[in-house]
Amino acid sequence: MNERRIISVIVSNEHGVLSRISGLFAGRGYNIETLTVAPIPNTNFSRFTISTKGSVQVIEQITKQLHKLIPTLKVMEHKEHDVDNIQKEMALLKFPDSESVADIDALSKAYNGGVVNVGDNVIVVMVADEPFRIKQFIKATEKYNPVEIVRGGVVAIER
């Protein structure tokens, strides 16, 4: 039984740490669905947020192996719809300007976003919401013929 998990990893902000983490997944055949990384302000640490899928045993091994890495300070594991944390993902989408700006704007507002740019040929929209809502939004906008979709990957924070 495969389950989806969001894993937050706090690591020393040093060179090579990204390849330690991605190598851990690759070498054991585990899958990374999304990955976001940024330094934690005013510290020497970075925060990785990884979404992955696997059996309970695999997820347990992943968290233990992540913790075993020397630069790892802390590992936190969340289920997809856990109430103890907030999960958000951001996406940017590009539509042809032949589509209705008003319709797209209205739809994206419902997903905590809006039109961020209207250029010569394209409309660019940003939405930020829970990961499953982002999926819904992408599905809902299919009929407006998006030309490009960029998903940001999940970030999570405890309540």
Binding site: H15, G16, S19, R20, G23, G27, I70
Partner: peptide, 16 residues
């Protein structure tokens, strides 16, 4: 070298 030794060491360092 550190790219190669990463999966077969407990830890590795490139001194900068």
């Amino acid at each position: 070298a550190v790219g190669i030794s990463r999966p077969c060491t407990k830890h590795n360092f490139l001194v900068k």
